[in-house]
């Protein structure tokens, strides 16, 4: 996993609540047996009209947001299915940070396993960011070490993050290798419960 600390980018404002993982990556794209190649299917049915043509109104299709690395959305982002294809698509598309007032549990967990930083800000802060991002392009600098999001206009938002997951992201650790260090504890447990 690639370590992550500082991300500088404009934000993409996705002003929706309850964005579910079926929208992030639709089931017709779940048949691949690889972890990569899902980016072009991200939000497929919002980026395309029913006839398959590009929906120019959808925020991701607007040219100013190309190459953005920070996605801002409303409450309960990533609800629904446990499919890790959702963070894979987000990552493969180029996003490294998702900011929302709240995340669904499984999606939140899945982000940390893939080097994506999910940031919780308050509803008011997110609404402020969404408004700024919708008005014109808005650039932020995300600093994981310091737990801050600094906007181009000098506004700074700080966030909380579980120290364990913070270390994992900062160092790009592979969790399975870490767990192997507890092999003795696992063996003891198995002996006691045999």
């Amino acid at each position: 996993m690639k370590p992550i600390n500082i991300v500088e980018s404009i934000i993409v404002p996705l002003n929706r609540k309850n964005v579910d993982t079926d929208q992030i990556i639709s089931k017709e794209f779940l048949k691949r047996i690889e972890r990569t190649g899902f980016g072009k299917y991200l939000f497929y049915h919002w980026r395309h009209r029913p006839d398959g043509s590009r929906n120019e109104d959808f925020v991701l299709n607007q040219p100013q947001f190309e190459n953005a690395k920070v996605l801002v959305a409303h409450e309960n982002f990533g609800c629904g299915s446990s499919r890790e294809h959702a963070p894979w698509a987000i990552m493969d598309y180029g996003f490294q940070v998702v900011i929302a007032p709240s995340f669904a549990d499984i999606f939140h967990n899945n982000c940390f396993k893939n080097g994506i930083l999910p940031i919780r800000l308050t509803v008011e802060e997110v609404e402020e960011l969404l408004a700024k991002g919708e008005q014109s392009t808005y650039e932020v600098k995300v600093n994981l070490e310091e737990q801050t999001v600094a906007g181009q206009d000098g506004a700074t938002y700080s966030f909380e993050i579980d120290p364990y997951y913070k270390q994992m992201l900062l160092n790009g650790w592979d969790e399975i290798s870490l767990t192997f260090q507890y092999e003795g504890h696992i063996q003891n447990y198995e002996k006691q419960h045999a």
Binding site: E84, N109, N110, D162, E175, I176, T179, F180, I186
Partner: peptide, 21 residues
């Protein structure tokens, strides 16, 4: 009983455990 992502599936396959808050 709870749902997990694919990285966690791999974690359980290799260690039979999961880190959970």
């Amino acid at each position: 009983a709870f749902g997990i992502g694919t990285s966690e599936v791999e974690h359980v396959l290799s260690t039979q455990t999961l880190w959970q808050s």
